Simulated assay, not measured.
Amino acid sequence: MLIRRETPADVDAIRSVTAAAFARPGGGEPFEARLVDLLRAHDSWLPPLSRVAVDGAGRIVGHVLCTRATVDGAAVLGLGPLSVHPDRQRAGVGSALVYSVLGAADALGATLVGVLGDPAYYRRFGFVPSGVHGIVPQVPDWAPHFQVLGLAADTPRGTFRYPEPFFAEG
């Protein structure tokens, strides 16, 4: 498996993988598939931090991204969505994608990454409940599932804010 940066030729495959990963009973395109497109068109988009997992046959089987976010005006990153095709889940694809994007974020000088997701999953990458770093999510109900990873000794404190596309009508 190869982890690499997204290219323009990958857009349709990424949408397909994201839709499959977040499929819900009753069908319809999941919000997460549209969210990736909305983020790609927004000024929060960071092309070096949109990564795909490619299997040995050249098929895209996973995708992850980080976008610009803020903590009380300080520049930080928001991770997600993370998508792995259902037939490749629980095989290390998601972990490889997360490690890749976190390494790239660190190399670009990011100080902190926030994620809304399963604490049991993201703990393995070093994420901790956001309150440990004095950070609160902009939506209070997210608190049990909102985590952060400090990439620098001095991380900002305050309210974490995702970019506007995260709040588009689903």
Rank of each mutant, 00 (worst) to 15 (best):
M1A: 08
L2K: 13
R4S: 03
R5I: 04
A9V: 04
D10G: 03
D10C: 02
V11N: 02
V11W: 01
D12Q: 11
A13Y: 00
I14G: 09
S16P: 04
T18G: 11
A20M: 12
A21F: 08
A21V: 05
A21M: 08
F22Y: 15
P25V: 14
G27I: 07
P30H: 12
P30S: 14
F31K: 15
R34F: 12
L35Y: 07
D37Q: 14
D37N: 13
L38T: 10
A41Q: 15
A41E: 15
D43S: 12
S44W: 00
P48A: 01
L49I: 01
L49F: 00
R51I: 14
A53M: 04
V54A: 04
A57R: 13
L65F: 03
L65G: 11
C66S: 08
T67C: 14
T67V: 13
T67A: 15
R68A: 15
A69C: 09
T70Q: 11
G73E: 13
A74D: 15
V76N: 05
G78D: 09
G80P: 01
P81V: 10
P81A: 11
L82T: 01
S83D: 10
V84Y: 02
V84D: 03
P86V: 06
D87N: 07
A91K: 15
G92C: 10
G92Q: 08
G94T: 03
A96H: 02
V98S: 06
Y99A: 15
G103D: 12
G103W: 02
D106V: 08
L108M: 14
G109T: 08
T111N: 09
G117D: 03
G117Y: 01
Y121T: 03
Y121A: 07
Y122P: 09
F125T: 05
F127M: 11
H133I: 01
G134E: 08
G134N: 03
Q138G: 13
Q138R: 13
P140Q: 06
P140G: 10
A143P: 01
P144G: 04
Q147T: 14
A152C: 07
A153K: 12
A153Q: 14
G158H: 05
G158Y: 03
F160H: 07
Y162M: 14
Y162Q: 15
P163E: 00
P163M: 01
P165L: 05
P165Y: 04
F166I: 01
A168R: 12
A168I: 07
G170C: 10
